[in-house]
Amino acid sequence: MPGLPTRTTSPTRTTAERAMRPDKPRRYGPIGLALMAAAAGLWAAWTSGIDLATVLRGPETLLRILRMMLLPPDVSAAPAAFAGMIESLQIAWIGTLLGAAVSLPIGLLAAKNVGGRFSTTVARQVLNLLRSLPELVLAILFVSIIGLGPLAGALAIGLGSIGTLGKLTAEVVEGIDRGPIEAAEAVGASRVQVLRWGVLPQAMPEIIAFWLYRFEINVRASAILGLVGAGGIGGMLANYLSYRRYGSAGMAILIVIAVTIAIDAVSSRIRRRIIAGPQGSRTGPDPVPAADAL
């Protein structure tokens, strides 16, 4: 067993020039962040006026309600709930398509390597504004403008998707390889031709993957919009819950969960294939990036 390595055996440097051990640097950043989080948490818990007894009673009540919901779920509510969920899927589909169609040109304009300086700034601001509107608020507005029904939901989902989709489109386009654009310009292509043959072939797989990902998110969103009368399963659910028809609500929730998970599975498989190609691996991380995608 060799001994511990010791500094005296190092032959290549003299004592004078041997490096000194550095002092341990003090890093206040992470500690500060943790303290801030803890202080905020304590303040919030202290002033919330929530009493512990209510919290502790929670699990019991939750279990009771869950039992009423699931043991057994009200199977007679299944056909209506399923029809509602189908309507939610339709809302999500049309909404995503509308969002995708509008976001593509805006996103291209917002990309620095495609749009001009002025159009980039304007397009980005438009996208930022759209991104901060919650779908529910949009749905309320559309319901009051065009009346109750799934179309209001689809429009709300569409408008709500433009912001994130446009932003991600711009990011993807900005990240592409400049070479093919140069090559297209070198053969004398017009701006539109450069877009079509230099930019889109590189960016499209990612952009379509984002559309699909957004569709997954929109399925969740469309399942709740019914609450404000914008169609889909949400209105039914809200009614069941407020009239304490827990068995029917349980059935509807089960259908929401099952359909959402099924859609996620299919969609993430397609996304993976789009990004990696047919030969691409089936394992590995989901090719969905940026937290902002949500």
Partner: peptide, 16 residues
Amino acid sequence: RAIPDLLYAMVFVAVF
């Protein structure tokens, strides 16, 4: 993840 935030809110309003 499959359950939307608003649905959680509805259920927990029923609970709490």
